[in-house]
Amino acid sequence: MKAAAFDYHVPESVDAAVALLAELGDEAKVLAGGQSLVPVMAMRLGRPEHIVDVNRIEALAGATRSNGTLRVGALTRHRALETDVLIRDSVPLLARAAPHIGHFQIRNRGTVGGSLAHADSAAELPAVAVALDAEIEVRSTRGSRRIRAADFFVSIFMTALEPDELVTAVHLPVWGRGCGFAVAEFARRHGDFALAGAACGVQVDGGRIVRAAVGLIGMGSVPVRARLAEQTLTGADAHEVDLASIGRDAVAALDPPSDTHGSAAYRRHLGAQMTARALGRALAEAQGQERNPGQSQAQAEAGGTA
């Protein structure tokens, strides 16, 4: 369980990092938090010739908010999704997803950009990105571009990233008032990758659902956005939503993997249940917020544990 030898590069700026990627191409791998890449290397499933360690690029970490968008730097650690007040208040779904990512020791190192670039469809952040219509900002020596999450995740562990491109940030929309967010997962053990899960957001105005986002975890080769469920929800009376039926509809057309951990049918069943559960929680929060707009759940939670 030792990684094969590699050349180690530690750029201190994004420019230096993308210059290295341009020079080294396919032979280089970007090392961010390392919580997925290092095990892959230890098991010799991957043996990159060059490692470009971006951990010293301070400009890649941290979040900023402007014009209704939260920009989360690629090197922002998973831990910050829970602890950073700006992130928690701007895009609560990130904070709700974070506790489901591995264990706290993993979240201390793991990064937002790393999770997106690794593109595990059973992971939380890709599903959040797809559900919220996030844009992934990438850089190379050829310039910068933004890729919609829906186009970013191509297949299992495959993204639209070119070998010379570095994920620099993710841009997520900040929703308005009357919102609720929740993530529900089913895993064999806490901290394991989920067999199935859902990341949901709803916005309620005057008792009606005006916006809905449903991302499914572990239900295919890429994170899935349940557009049909979103359409059914949008415009519906928030008190009269048939959650079980929406959950079933969300997964009906999907073909999740079958393996020793569970059959496709079992995963579909779990996916429907998790969708209903997450939507139920999100709706309850949104309705509570519509009644008490001053207090978000994040603030309520922070007050409760302070």
Binding site: Y8, L31, G34
Partner: peptide, 27 residues
Amino acid sequence: CEHGVCGSCTVLLDGLAVRSCLMFGVQ
């Protein structure tokens, strides 16, 4: 396990608990 599952190698890095098998020493 040497691949980040068992937690036996946990150390504090600048005060935060991390798996020391999932970091290279040079880092």
